[in-house]
Amino acid sequence: MPGRREIKRRQTRLALITAALRLADERGVDRVTTEEISAAAEVSPRTFFNYFATKEHALVGDPLEDCPAPVLKPLPLLDALLDALAPAFEQIQGDRDLWLLRMRVISANPQLLPLLIAAAASAEQRLAQAIADQTGLAPDHPRPQVAAAVANAAVRVAVVRWAESGDSRPLIEHVREAFHHLKEVDDSRRT
C-alpha cells in the first residue's frame, strides 16, 4: 500500500497530465504553456518540472508509469502476457476519459507522435526484458523482443478499437480478442 507521500505524488502527476490534456484539447498544444498547465493544476511551474521535462512529456509521457513491472507466470507466452499486463489494462479502463482525451490530443497534434513512439518503444523494451528474465533467455535473444513487439501491436489495435467502439466492453476484452487472433495466426501455421 503506497504511503501518503506517494499518493500525493501520484495525485499531483495526474493533475498535471489532466490539466495539460484539457488545455491542449481546448487550444492546441502550441497555444499552451507550462505556466498555464501548472496554474490549472494548482502547482508551481517548478513543481511541473519536477515531474515532466516538457509540456509534451506531460501530454504523452509514460501513462503507465505507476504500473508494476510485468511478472510472467509459467503459462503459454500470450496467456502469461495477458495476465501480467492485466493491471495496466485495468488502470487504462479506470482512466477511460483521460485516455480518450489523450488519444484525441495526439491525433490533433501529430508533432507529438515521435514522443509517443519513443514512449511505446521504452515500454516495449521493458516488456522484452521481463520476457527475457522470465524465460531465462539472454536479453539480446530475438524471441523476447519479437514477443514484446507483437504483444505491443496487439494491445495498440485493441486500445484503438476500444476507444473507437463506443461499446461498453472493457478494454481487457478487446485485448483478449486481439490476443486470440494472434493465437489463430500461430495455430493456422500448424495446419
Rank of each mutant, 00 (worst) to 15 (best):
V160H: 13
A149Q: 13
A80E: 01
S44G: 13
A69D: 12
A158V: 01
P70L: 02
L127G: 10
D83P: 10
A86W: 04
L115T: 05
S38W: 03
P45R: 15
E42V: 04
I117Q: 13
I131S: 07
A123N: 11
N50T: 11
V146K: 13
E42A: 13
A39Y: 06
R104H: 12
I117P: 00
L101M: 15
N109S: 15
E65R: 13
I37Y: 03
R46F: 08
S44M: 10
A149E: 08
Y51S: 11
L137F: 10
L72M: 13
A86H: 01
V160F: 05
M103L: 15
R161I: 05
L75Q: 13
A41G: 12
L112T: 12
P87T: 06
M103T: 02
D83Q: 08
I106N: 04
V155E: 07
A121Q: 14
L72T: 10
A118L: 05
F52K: 07
L115C: 06
D97K: 08
I92F: 01
V71L: 03
P76C: 11
A163I: 01
Q129T: 15
A88M: 00
A132Q: 02
D79M: 08
S165T: 06
R143A: 14
Y51D: 06
I92L: 03
M103Q: 15
I131C: 03
L101Y: 09
D97E: 12
L112E: 08
A108Y: 00
S122W: 06
I37H: 07
Q93M: 00
P139G: 12
V159N: 00
R104P: 08
V155W: 06
A154E: 05
I37Q: 10
P74N: 08
L72S: 07
S38V: 07
F52R: 15
V71D: 01
P74L: 11
D140Q: 11
R126N: 12
T47Q: 07
E90D: 14
A158R: 09
F48S: 07
I131N: 07
L101Q: 14
R46E: 08
L64N: 09
D133M: 12
L113R: 15
L81W: 04
L116A: 14
E56N: 15
A53I: 04
D83V: 00
H57M: 08
T47K: 13
N109Y: 06
A154F: 02
A119T: 14
A138S: 14
